[in-house]
Simulated assay, not measured.
Amino acid sequence: MTETKRLATYCGIAAPLVTLGAILIATLVAPPETFTWRTRALSDMGRYGAPTFPLFNGGLIVGGLIGLPFAWRLWTASRNRLERAGIALLVVTVVGQIGVGIFFLEHTAVYLERSLHPVAALSVFGVAPFAGWVYGTGAARAGDTRLAVASIAIGFVHPLTWAGWVLALDGAVDTDTWFAVPEFVAAVAFGSWILLLAVTIAYRHDDPDWSAR
């Protein structure tokens, strides 16, 4: 493994830690009028003028940028078209994450007349599970059963979490009630998958037969 590829693999470990760390710290320091788990979305911490504005948005942007080199590393280690398709969806998710930070809530007060925040958020939460399912299917085709099962299973965390949230609200979709909880669970699921992929790539280099065991 070249030094460039090694650093790119490490990016797969650093990216979710930076992103999730920034989100978690923001939830701890945000004043109640800005964020509570019960009444706010995570993006409220990145709203224009919020005290956690630089921490939350900066964490999403920096974490996403760190994740892009890992996507390249993953692509170089891909074994078939399905894995590459899953990686492409992963990139869409990461770019969406960066977009959430750039197109923060009420960014229209600073630039642009049209809010792009919903589009960026949908790119994250809507595409992430498909990335896991498609990549996992490719891993299965490559004979990497453990990675396939883990990727597909983590992908299912997203819809199951959102479905559980909707059911808990008696079928009502209310972004003002506990909305941050499924958002955070989905973010942790995606970050965990990235960590899994990074560790897998590292082990695969050290032991080429690891995935077949």
Rank of each mutant, 00 (worst) to 15 (best):
I23G: 00
A187N: 05
F56C: 10
P16L: 01
L65W: 11
R204A: 14
L24C: 06
W162M: 07
A140Y: 04
P69V: 14
G46P: 04
I13Y: 15
A189M: 01
R81F: 08
T19L: 13
W162T: 06
G99L: 02
G191E: 06
A212F: 10
W72H: 11
G99K: 02
V92R: 01
A85D: 12
T200Q: 10
L24R: 01
A8Q: 14
L89T: 04
N80C: 03
A148T: 02
P69E: 06
G191A: 10
Y135Q: 08
A109E: 15
T93V: 13
P51F: 13
T161Y: 04
W162C: 03
V94M: 09
L17Y: 03
E83T: 08
Y111T: 09
H158V: 13
A50V: 12
G59K: 01
A71F: 02
V127T: 11
V92L: 14
L160V: 14
W165N: 00
L105V: 14
P69D: 07
D44P: 08
L20H: 03
V100M: 10
F184T: 02
R213K: 14
L82T: 11
G12Q: 01
F130D: 10
D207E: 12
L74D: 05
R47T: 15
L7D: 09
P54E: 03
V127P: 12
M45R: 04
P208L: 07
A202G: 04
R47A: 15
L195F: 12
A172H: 13
G21N: 00
L147N: 03
S211W: 13
T175L: 15
Y10E: 09
T2W: 09
V149R: 13
L147C: 05
P69T: 11
T4V: 15
D207F: 02
P159R: 07
I201N: 04
T161N: 09
T36I: 11
G191R: 04
T145D: 09
L147M: 15
T39C: 00
I66D: 02
D174I: 12
A148G: 01
W165Y: 10
V181R: 02
T19M: 08
G59W: 10
A26P: 02
G143S: 04
P129S: 11
V91P: 00
L160A: 14
Y10M: 11
L7E: 05
L28Y: 05
A172E: 15
F184I: 02
V94W: 03
R204I: 05
P118M: 03
W37Y: 09
I98Y: 01
P129K: 03
L65Y: 05
G143Y: 07
P118T: 04
P69G: 08
F179K: 04
W178P: 00
